[in-house]
Amino acid sequence: MEENILICEDSLEGVLTAVYTAYEKRYSPEKTGIQVSEEGNLRLFAVYEYVETDTEKSAKVLRTLRRRFGEEGCYTICQALASAEEEKATAVYRTIAKGLRLQKPESVLLRYADADVQTVQKLKCSVWHEMHHLFGFLRFRELQNGILFSEISPKNNVTAYLAEHFSDRLPREHFVICDCGRGLFAVHEAGKRWFLVQNPDFDREAVRESDEEAVCQELFRHFCHKISVEARENKTLQRGMLPLRFRPYMTEFDGK
């Protein structure tokens, strides 16, 4: 039997458009896969087709998900799609398909013995963890014009979640969060709704810190140093709790 493979853009909208397409064409979920890049192994007996991202279609799917899977179920699905793993798209698609056949679609997410659900839960969990890590590990620097500026390089595409969190927390601040790896910027203007920009015209050299910034950074470094109990020193534990990959962006590690 032939397999259909839909190839789409690696974004929430991209994958949800592919889900829409699969439904529209009445493909059988068992024999259909979604791939977010072309790099996967080409398979024999598979028909490949490209799906152009369509925000109207993806918005429709999102509405359905919200209605049928509930807020929480929908959140799980979207967060799994923020994963950097290839396997996410097919697993999410099949989980959605299995769920929609049930009276209570969100209950499909509790089927921990189902391979697709397992994948979705696993991915959601790792995205959530990285997001939660960055809630804490992200650092803002104050620029001369008063804007708070942050650079991160997360594995998963968590910038939107961070922007949501920080705009709730710092409603009256201008801030920019830059996912360096993806060239994705979240921009928040005081008192307004945040938005994302991909590869904006941005001059890294123009970033100038305010005069107070260096003083504040020094105070924090001093604090972190003083708050540690020498008799308990344990760098292995520290490394376990705060993986090295976050440190280049953290004030207290001074880029080390």
Partner: peptide
């Protein structure tokens, strides 16, 4: 939320 970890491995929140 943990914001950092000091050299003794304890959370700085």
């Amino acid at each position: 939320i943990c914001h950092s970890f000091s050299a003794d491995g304890r959370c700085i929140s």
